[in-house]
Amino acid sequence: MIRYAALRLLQGVPVLLVVATITFALLRVIPGGPFDREKTLPPEILRNVEARYHLDEPVARQYLRYLGGILTGDLGPSYKYLGRDVTQILADAFPVSMELGSAALAISLLFGVSAGLAGAVRRGRAPDRVLGMLAVAGMSLPSFVLGAGLILGFGLWLGWLPAGLWEGPLSVVLPAITLAAAPAAYIARLTRSSVLDVIDMDFVRTARAKGVSEARVRRHHVLRNALLAVTTYFGPLLAMLLTGSFVVEKVFAIPGMGRFFVTAVTNRDYPLVLGVTLVYAALIVIANLAVDLLYAWLDPRIRLGRSKA
């Protein structure tokens, strides 16, 4: 198990390198550069600026310089936030994203799984379904629309919660709900779908026929399979919470990392884009590993490292 995990993490390294390369290439191909300004810079000044950031070197050289930086743990200086390193910027922003993300993760799992189970078990009872689906539809609004609704409703009209900022536990509520909504809806549908798949399956019928109690059947066979489906979704879920948070961070003025996925690109802050992309990719590699491990644990039919054998 540990050898397998170590191997998978090692396999992640080339993935990260390829990700860095693709992002680097895409960034250099799209039009517009970091120092294109509304007030155009005179040529001699542009030369100084480009020299400072080695942008006057051939691209291949810049690429090697960048890779060398990654290997020594140096992600380079930001082109936008002068005097700050990308590493430093990410170190400031990452904990905030994690905090918001974990709150949203808890909400979406709790709400999603229970709504999904309820939906599956009570299938066919129209009022439940109408209510459930209305909730789902509400949660599936674009997050900026939902965020606007929550801000207007709970902030402006009811005055219960702050409409933004990042000060104290109260300010986490609205953004966490906004961020959790879409994943929760997704999880609910996934759970419902997989529970219904399993309920009619042979081994469940067999279990019932053998006289296993209904509660035990649900717990052991049905829930386990439902979790299996949700587990598959864990990687994308993490991704959704991280990159999805850029809208939520913008709407609620939260100083997290998500915003850089967009602003760093629009600023053409190459090192910062590469920095957030690498952090994101590393998280995905780790999450995928975690999913596979969980999967193996939940479904004994799948053996780890089978393809290696």
Binding site: Q11, V15, L16, V18, V19, I22, T23, L26, L27, V29, I30, P31, G235, A239, L242, T243, F246, F261, V262, V265, V273, V276, T277, Y280, A281, I284, V285, N288
Partner: peptide, 22 residues
């Protein structure tokens, strides 16, 4: 699946923006 891993490891929104601009 390695290829999928790579594409997967790129943030959606970043990919959308970059490809769209390109």
């Amino acid at each position: 699946m390695r290829v999928v891993d790579v594409v997967y490891s790129l943030p959606d929104i970043l990919l959308i923006i970059l490809i769209k601009q390109l």
